[in-house]
């Protein structure tokens, strides 16, 4: 009888509508409509000023053959892979911080401070770190006796990876925070029980804690990959996608086309393709990480 009541209450259509409507309305109006519009602008030859001309799928066809676009897509994918891999490090840090070691609370606060800084500050910091002649990194390298340290942001073979580091670092706090909250949500009793059974801290972490926050971990995989595929900020400020496109990503390429080259139609088409690519990747990840039985307490 209890379950019947439960089912009835929990499938009340009116309540479901009331609870989801605000979110859906906002997203439909302010995100979905602009998305559709950008797909539509992608069908136009339009410099953003004056009349537009319908040219069908031409922009999309050109984009598919545009080597610059595919290069920028490759860079975005590389960033996504590195970001996803770095989640493992963040998870490890969060596990340490959430365990009962002395000073964990204090350390956690310090660890998260960089995420509070705006991109402007972070970009300036890393530009100073990477400066070829006065920068911190090269001062250290030269101090260690390396005569010709690389010009990190000028060398087309290095720049992409050099700029990944601040991007990944910038988001460290974000993921550590999420993992930390999830870990703290694990009932103390489970951990205590395992301790009594003689499990080591490492075993507790890997066999109990990690499986319990798997759902959260899956969400962060999606967040990091989606976030990377549309990433823009530091790239734009630190290198502008240069030199000669060596650090261009999809979003910065789109911005350049729409805002600097006045090719708004083509820029919109690239923006729309970015969305499609992200969508496909997300569906694949969701499929790959889907588990048959959800973990329950």
């Amino acid at each position: 009888m209890g379950l019947n009541v439960m089912n009835k209450v929990m499938s009340n259509k009116w309540i479901i509508f009331l609870y989801t409507f605000p979110a859906l309305l906002l997203i439909a109006v302010l995100i979905v409509i602009p998305l559709i519009l950008s797909g539509y602008f992608g069908l136009m030859d339009w410099d953003g000023i004056g009349a537009m001309e319908f040219i069908g799928l031409e922009n999309y066809i050109v984009a598919l053959q545009d080597t610059k676009f595919w290069e920028s897509a490759l860079h975005s994918f590389l960033l996504a892979i590195f970001s996803a891999l770095s989640l493992l490090i963040y998870l490890a840090v969060a596990l340490i911080l959430a365990s009962k070691i002395k000073g964990a609370n204090f350390l956690r606060k310090i660890y998260l401070i960089p995420m509070l800084l705006s991109s402007v500050a972070i970009a300036q910091l890393w530009v100073k770190i990477y400066n070829p002649s006065n920068g911190m990194l090269n001062s250290i390298l030269m101090g260690l006796g390396i005569d010709n340290p690389p010009a990190w942001l000028a060398d087309p073979n290095i720049v992409l990876y050099a700029i990944f580091i601040p991007i990944i670092w910038q988001y460290a706090g974000f993921y550590i925070l999420i993992y930390y909250a999830a870990l703290k949500n694990i009932p103390e009793s489970l951990v205590e029980a395992a301790k009594i059974d003689g499990a080591t801290p490492l075993q507790i972490a890997l066999k109990i804690k990690v499986p319990l926050i798997m759902n959260v971990f899956k969400v962060t995989i999606v967040l990091s990959i989606v976030g990377s595929l549309k990433y823009f900020d530091l790239i734009y400020v630190m290198t502008g996608g240069g030199p000669n496109g060596a650090s261009e990503v999809m979003a910065s390429y789109m911005y350049k086309l729409a805002f600097a080259s006045y090719d708004f139609g083509y820029g919109s088409a690239i923006g729309f393709l970015l969305l499609i690519i992200t969508l496909i990747v997300t569906v694949i990840i969701r499929k790959l990480t889907a588990s048959k039985d959800e973990i329950q307490y």
């Binding site: 400066n131 070829p132 002649s133 010009a151």
Partner: peptide
Amino acid sequence: FVSGFNGLADEEAKSM
């Protein structure tokens, strides 16, 4: 030119 000029902003060069 100064080393790494392709990665330097004009402002950084000016300061040098």
